[in-house]
Computed example of a mutant assay.
Amino acid sequence: MDKRNGCPHAALASNATFLSAIFVVTLILVRLLYVVYCSGRPLSKRSSKPISTLIILGSGGHTAEMLNLLAVLQKDRFKPRSYVAAATDNMSLQKAQLLENSLVAEDGTKASDNTAQFMKIYRSREVGQSYITSVWTTLIALAHALWLMIKIRPEVILCNGPGTCIPLCAIAFMFKVLGIRWSSIFYVESIARVRRLSLSGLLLYKLRMADQLFVQWPKLQQQYPRAIYVGRLM
């Protein structure tokens, strides 16, 4: 039997597999470029219907800054609202619940009519945790973030750090590229950051995951030209 007869078929199969892989990679790259190009579209051009919104809370000063931002948010447009905080953060969600309760009281509606959700997510890395063990906790956080994003399916994500927002934003960006769900990511850098972005802000900026990144100091905007300077928000 001539073994050479099988060689052309094997070569064709190998070439077909290689070309298929190239085609898939090309499609992903084209979609990635499309997502980066289209990110940052103004919400004013969209439908006036309510926009499901995910609000990622940090802790301490981060939560205080976010709640101040929410005080001027168009509540009727950005709803239903879902709040997510780190599993080890025992205060942020309580403050968010107080805010939502005050909004219900102002509107004169029943508490049962409030559609806000309050959820927790595992941290990627705790303060002082070694980088080696953080690999495992990061994978857990990504899996948890995937489950939350499938459940919430937000159209808008508001965040201001710290690292709690990274897994959720990464999943949201992946959903954009795969065409599963388009979530606009808006990141507001902390007022404490005067010269350099935080690690969370830097990742979202460098990887172009944030549709718009806002800074509160002009020096930051000079150093990161794609950031948007909005002045002090507090």
Rank of each mutant, 00 (worst) to 15 (best):
L158Y: 03
S44N: 10
V84F: 01
Q222G: 11
L197C: 01
I180F: 13
V72Q: 12
I228Q: 11
L178F: 10
V30T: 10
A143T: 10
E155L: 06
S200L: 02
F18E: 13
R125P: 02
I56N: 03
L213R: 03
T17A: 15
T133Y: 07
C38Q: 13
P154E: 01
I171P: 01
I55G: 00
P42G: 05
A71Q: 12
T26W: 05
S39A: 12
I140L: 10
A105N: 07
S39L: 03
L142H: 06
D113E: 15
L148V: 00
V194C: 07
N101F: 08
D113G: 02
I228V: 14
W182H: 13
L33G: 11
M234Y: 10
D211A: 02
Q212P: 02
K151P: 00
G58N: 02
A21P: 03
C38I: 11
G161C: 02
R195L: 08
N68M: 13
V156Q: 06
T17V: 13
R232Y: 05
G60Q: 02
K120I: 08
K3N: 10
Y34K: 10
W217Q: 06
P218T: 04
E126R: 09
K75L: 13
L213M: 08
R181I: 05
L27R: 11
V72F: 11
A21L: 11
L27H: 08
Y224W: 05
D2Y: 00
S52R: 15
S47P: 08
D211M: 01
K45Y: 14
Y187C: 03
E100S: 01
R77A: 04
I185M: 01
W136Y: 09
Y205F: 07
V177Q: 06
L70P: 01
A86Q: 01
S47Y: 06
T115L: 15
A172D: 05
G128F: 11
D89I: 00
V135G: 05
R41S: 13
F78S: 05
S134D: 03
S48E: 14
I166V: 15
L199T: 09
A87V: 12
Q221P: 04
A10C: 13
N90D: 14
A105M: 09
K110C: 09
N101E: 15
T115P: 14
W182L: 11
Y37P: 03
D76S: 15
V177T: 08
R81N: 09
Y37S: 12
G179L: 04
G201C: 07
I191C: 04
L12Y: 11
V25Y: 08
V215E: 04
T63V: 04
G6T: 08
S59H: 07
L29D: 03
L178A: 08
